[in-house]
Nucleic acid binder design. Sequence first.
DNA 1: TGGACAGGCAAGCGCCCGCTTGCGTATCGT
DNA 2: ACGATACGCAAGCGGGCGCTTGCCTGTCCA
Lengths: 97, 97
Amino acid sequence: MGDVFKALADPTRRALLDELQERDGQTLFELCTRLLHRGVGSSRQAVSQHLDVLEQAGLVRRRREGRYTFHSLDTSPLRAITRRWRIDPEEDPCGSA
Amino acid sequence: MGDVFKALADPTRRALLDELQERDGQTLFELCTRLLHRGVGSSRQAVSQHLDVLEQAGLVRRRREGRYTFHSLDTSPLRAITRRWRIDPEEDPCGSA
DNA sequence: TGGACAGGCAAGCGCCCGCTTGCGTATCGT
DNA sequence: ACGATACGCAAGCGGGCGCTTGCCTGTCCA
């Protein structure tokens, strides 16, 4: 599933994942306007195409309802990354002991 | 650090990380020949450029020794991924309870 | 029912990315 | 010292990616 990595390669798509994590179930226009507030200025079509890529990577699910299309985040494909490479443990950042 | 995501976007670079995880401290030629055995046929220059990208992303460290350059894996930048997005827990795949 | 709204589809374009090619440099063996 | 080895550097090229443009479909409201 190299699609996941390709999907993560673009900063706008990563911002979309950030936005969906902060507020799930947003529409296309909502995401566009909130991206603007983040300083990411992308047109509606551009964002839509980004969401296509994210959907194909399994990171975003679409739910049509009337004339609205709601988008929800699915981070489960990201587990493939943590499974593939052994990630060294942290240097005890919060004193878990 | 969007460099990490860009570095992971290429399948050859991911194979290089796999190879270094399996055997750390390989030279350029070693990596080339072992990639061939994995079915990834890339020239020396191509692999070298890939290693440049990986080094710039902080995923690979280079250590010059005589006329050899050894490469070692550093997975710590990958933690940024797991930190950025909340990854849903597994569906109890191995019955940990 | 007509118009506004939310979104989809497809072609075209510019640019970056990955690869090749050619040459240069430093180190090792004999 | 000379050739071979291991690698770096830089220019050039082709293909893919992201964006735009234009038009179309479907849905809600007065």
